[in-house]
Nucleic acid binder design. Structure first.
Ligand SMILES: [Mn+2]
Ligand SMILES: [Mn+2]
Ligand SMILES: [Zn+2]
Ligand SMILES: [Zn+2]
Lengths: 141, 141
DNA sequence: TCCTAAATAGGAATATATCTTATTTAAAAA
DNA sequence: TTTTTAAATAAGATATATTCCTATTTAGGA
């Protein structure tokens, strides 16, 4: 935030547009974890005719350049699990394959301090993300 | 297998329908983590006129009775994060609020054995899920 | 200032999932 | 067994988030 958004864009090689500057400013000023819609509602005040597409495009652009991150699931649709034993998953970021893994060590880790002030924890969800063997092989071509 | 399913349904107090029996059988026979569409494609062979709605309803039903689990995101839309420091999240399963947490202990845990055979891990994603303070308070009414 | 590739607005399209309603059916009652 | 009725289903409409398409505008370089 020390640096001007304009400079950041130029460094990365992005065109400086009013929409981008405003979205950047909004993101910096918003607390929490806004959804695209939240950003859209905010920027509409200054750019009443901005389109949803521009907001989505810009957020993707920022994400691709590491200016923001997504808090999200990898798969685009719900996947069901018939394995009811406690386990975790390796998820391929390319083909979305989900593979069961056991990782007892992580289940034993005590809760982080202070979490009881946030609410009642009922579950912990752990995902290892990467590129699966199949996709790595395909890559070698 | 079919005998089993019939008994399970009765135990839980569910009506035994051909669609449910078949979906149950399909789930038991499918490996991996099928999406609703995968189940739909499979059951269509025997019930060509089955509707997507029935598949979704049945999967929800099974999930509500603990016969299967969802591998899924909690929020219905993507949320963005401007906090680029390594951190994790507490997510409220009720209001979908996302709160940053630090949990260094979990970052230090070594990868589970054998994961290198699955692919190249690039990231680990950890979420604590539960009911946030606000929702707990509201509950007291 | 002019030029051109990139960005945008607006709306259409897509995809996943849920809802509505008329019809059928499971299973309890007679 | 037959009857009864609430529950389940099929079919299609609807909702919602996101992406795509295309004509127009614009940023930034020549
Ligand atoms: Mn699994
Ligand atoms: Mn965060
Ligand atoms: Zn893969
Ligand atoms: Zn909450």
């Amino acid at each position: 935030m020390e640096k001007d958004a304009r400079d950041i864009f130029k460094e990365i090689g992005l065109r400086v547009t009013p929409q981008r500057l405003e979205i950047f400013k909004i993101l910096a000023s918003m607390h929490g974890h806004p959804a695209a819609e939240d950003v859209f509602e905010r920027i509409r005040r200054r750019f009443p005719s901005i389109s949803f597409d521009t907001v989505y495009r810009t957020l993707s652009l920022f994400e691709n350049h590491g200016l923001i991150k997504k808090v999200h699931h990898l798969a685009d649709k719900t996947r069901y699990d018939t394995n009811l034993k406690r386990h975790h998953h390796f998820v391929c970021i390319r083909c979305k394959k989900i593979i069961d893994i056991e990782w007892d060590e992580i289940d034993g880790i005590p809760m982080p301090k202070g979490v009881e002030n946030l609410g009642r924890v009922e579950d912990r969800y752990v995902e290892l993300r990467g590129i699966c063997k199949d996709c790595l092989n395909e890559e070698e071509e």
